[in-house]
Design a protein around this nucleic acid. Structure first.
Lengths: 352, 352
DNA sequence: CTGTTAGCGCTTTCAA
DNA sequence: TTGAAAGCGCTAACAG
């Protein structure tokens, strides 16, 4: 399919009867050249649809053509949204964005580090998901080593001792906002559903939850907390487990799901067993995906400002601020509670 | 953040007191070398976490380090799924996958072609979405030019006169399957909702629909067809428009939505106006996203075999079959109807 | 088994 | 204004 030999700057130079330097200058529109020759070169280049290879040129300039984004996956709408925004930013700065799926193998990041260093993107944006691992390089060492080769920006919690820009959305505050909202609606038994505390995001959120519950004098030791994971199925299984574990009068009247997927799973399960949302149990999600307003009932959820934070993070990557010492520069964003119907706000304050 | 000067093969060679060739060989584990020196080189490389730059090495070998995937967007779960699968395949063949968002500007693909040629991925996978444009290079020319620089595989309908591999899922047959299913359930007035006939996928699907309707002797001239687009909002608006346009007794009893997003929008709107799915109106979607089973009611939909087709397409890209002349090699997949509840199959055959 | 050398396709001094 | 030439970081052919 591809020609035996791709057309190069030499071919253009030969046909235009000039040197390759002239071709290079013509195509990069540099100053100090006769417009006559430039036109000729451009015309011939157009004829063959020739453009100088960025990878080859980049070698020279010592400038990579791509930026990397590190995530555990891309199917989840949260990550997909981050990728989408980051890609737009990268492109508009002339870079392509390459997706690096976290290779969380037994080697503990070593293979992943190797891959990144081999491919040499011009910088990477690390999103959550990297967890501490007993073997091999730790997350700290991983980033340290990576930074020898390229700038790193973290979208998430800063890592102790790493000097880099971080953009993070305040999940603890998000949890507090959710608790506050549910408390105002009359809820006293509020539960956490889904999420794995191995991830910072989950534990941070839990801290905010505990915080606010205590502030309201609500018992938190036996507050139902269902771990599991981040998929709809975890919501389905988790809610059932939770309901079965408590006697009816101790059952939570409101659920804080770790994300919208889990919330959706929980709502589905509740519908199956005949419990009505929000009448019998209120639900608040987290993420505000495109489909969250299409669930039934429409999901009350936390908007995580993914677009804004992904954009910011890319800006920091493209134009790294001077950092002093080994301290991170963290840019903290506030989430926003999007009130729809699953929380029962329309039902007003109730005695529960 | 990045060191002033990145470590190179020379630095390793100096420290190991060998030539760069020896370093290169050691790190690529090539035969004919003393394991003593190799070990030494590897040890030093490990110490600095050095890996030879793929972009630099690739220049030499004439082999790119990336493959491209062309799509109109990535947020839509369909495209996201294709990307995800393609990325896994690309990685396991040692490539990174870069996302190219179709630049459908007034220049008619010229700028987009320039970008692709400049970045020189080792090949591209084109997914649907490329539409004919009055100005500048046509889709045909676009592909022709691209093929001068890299292999191209199409995930979708073949393009007349282009010799390349195509992997396509039979949307016409999918529409026929859906009509057949609804017909068997007793439906006679079936409508098409959403989609833009400028896209091949929509028109192909419409052809299958008409086909099968006629085969059943069902009137098709005044069959409700609502164009619009592919987002939930189009389903919301479209279904309303359709319902208003027909007197109650002429109203469709079943809807074929162009995709699951549109189906979800339609279901939401129907719930709002108090129509029950599937009792009052049946719905069949298309795509089978992860959330399709979480709608209420769970959506009956067409599984488009995205994983399988993306995988196949990447295989063809990685290992291009010999093509003779200018004829495409097309690999056609059958979609599968996933029967859940929105079609009313559980209600059995009814008189409608 | 190892080092020297010639590029890969391009940009960029440096002279002319 | 232009061309020759020196690399960018690396691999591979070729001697030794």
């Amino acid at each position: 399919m591809a020609e035996a030999r791709c057309i190069t700057i030499f071919d253009i130079a030969r046909e235009a009867e000039v040197s390759i330097a002239t071709v290079s200058r013509a195509l990069s529109d540099s100053p100090n050249q006769s417009s006559k020759k430039q036109r000729k070169v451009i015309e011939i280049a157009r004829k063959y649809n020739f453009r100088p290879s960025l990878p080859a040129g980049g070698l020279n300039r010592g400038k990579a053509g791509s930026l990397g984004i590190i995530m555990p996956e891309i199917l989840h709408p949260f990550y997909c949204g981050v990728f989408n925004t980051a890609e737009i930013e990268a492109r508009s700065a002339g870079y392509s964005l390459v997706f690096y799926r976290i290779l969380d193998d037994s080697q503990g990041y070593q293979a992943f580090l190797d891959l990144l260093i081999r491919e040499r993107p011009g910088g990477v944006l690390m999103t959550g998901g990297l967890v501490e691992n007993s073997k091999g390089p730790s997350r700290f060492e991983f980033i340290k080593h990576l930074q020898q080769y390229m700038p790193v920006v973290i979208l998430g919690q800063p890592v102790e001792g790493i000097a880099c820009s971080c953009v993070t959305v305040d999940l603890a505050e998000g949890a507090r906002m959710s608790v506050r909202h549910l408390h105002a609606l009359g809820h006293r038994r509020i539960a956490l559903l889904g999420g794995d505390p191995i991830n910072r995001s989950s534990s941070e959120r839990e801290a905010g939850f505990v915080d606010e519950m205590l502030r309201f004098g609500l018992p938190v030791d036996d507050a139902p907390r269902c771990e599991g994971s981040y998929a709809p199925i975890d919501g389905e299984a988790g809610i059932l487990k939770m309901l079965r574990r408590f006697p009816r009068e101790k059952r939570p009247t409101a659920i804080l799901a770790v994300n919208d997927m889990v919330a959706i799973g929980a709502m589905r399960q509740l519908a199956r067993i005949g419990m009505r949302v929000p009448h019998d149990i209120a639900i608040v999600g987290c993420d505000n995906h495109f489909y969250s307003e299409y669930t039934s009932p429409p999901l009350t959820t936390l908007d995580l400002k993914t677009e804004q934070s992904a954009k910011l993070a890319m800006r920091y990557l493209l134009d790294p601020p001077e950092l002093s010492g080994s301290v991170a520069m963290v840019h903290r964003l506030e989430p926003e509670l999007i009130i729809r119907e699953s929380c029962g706000a329309k039902l007003g304050r109730r005695e529960l």
